[in-house]
């Protein structure tokens, strides 16, 4: 249970400044909180509300709509096996069944060592490579029972630490814009005219 750290508050303000209205930063800041703690804590949602000008209930209202936000700790690795059409046609149900046995958890559960949480996900946009899964949103394609077991071994042995960050970190690269390159966001109420370059003439 933690508010955002000083470094993350600085990052949060940078993100907020990109939008004409600060509340647009709500989802990016929820990701930031989840990256910090592995899940989204109540304190973090209160803090995000302060930063974007919303009540904590409004922040939770938004957060609870979205599948990726977890409100209690999950395993270091979230394994999402796709169960939608194309994957189901090619054995996703059997793979999920195998995974439940191999990990000794039911869907939604976390292994005793706290390392892996297993979920069934909906279509992950890799339908030609079915059945597929994501570990912390990193793909594994055409997964077999054997390659699933191998994946679990590799995760337990820490062999994938370089490729797969712990749960909470999605993209490891952030947008960064130098102050002299940015045009800057303006509140819509403060804009009366079209952009100066939109004057019927060519820009070059």
């Amino acid at each position: 249970m933690a508010r955002l750290t000083e470094e993350n508050v600085r990052l949060a303000r940078e993100i907020i400044a990109r939008y004409p209205r600060s509340r647009s930063a709500t989802i990016p800041l929820l990701h930031l909180a989840q990256q910090q703690d592995g899940y989204v804590s109540n304190d973090a949602m209160v803090h995000i509300g302060e930063l974007v000008g919303a009540t904590s209930a409004e922040v939770f209202g938004t957060a609870s709509f979205y599948e990726m936000f977890k409100f209690e700790p999950v395993g270091k690795y979230l394994v999402n096996i796709c169960g939608t059409m194309s994957c189901a046609l090619l054995g996703a149900d059997e793979l999920i069944h195998h995974a439940e046995h191999a990990l000794d958890v039911k869907l939604g559960g976390t292994t005793d060592d706290g390392l892996i949480t297993l979920e069934r996900a909906e279509c992950q946009a890799a339908c030609t490579e079915a059945p597929c899964l994501q570990v912390n949103y990193r793909y594994r394609f055409r997964v077999t029972n054997e390659s699933f077991d191998q994946l679990v071994d590799d995760l337990r042995a820490g062999r994938l630490d370089g490729e797969i960050p712990p749960h909470g970190t999605v993209a490891r690269v952030r947008q960064r814009v130098a102050a002299d390159r940015v045009v800057g966001a303006v509140a819509p109420a403060d804009v009366a005219d079209g952009p100066s370059w939109f004057d019927g003439k060519a820009a070059l």
Partner: peptide, 12 residues
């Protein structure tokens, strides 16, 4: 011509 592109991302 000047315009910003803001990368935004969803949450499922």
């Amino acid at each position: 011509f000047s315009v910003d592109i803001v990368l935004h991302w969803g949450a499922g």
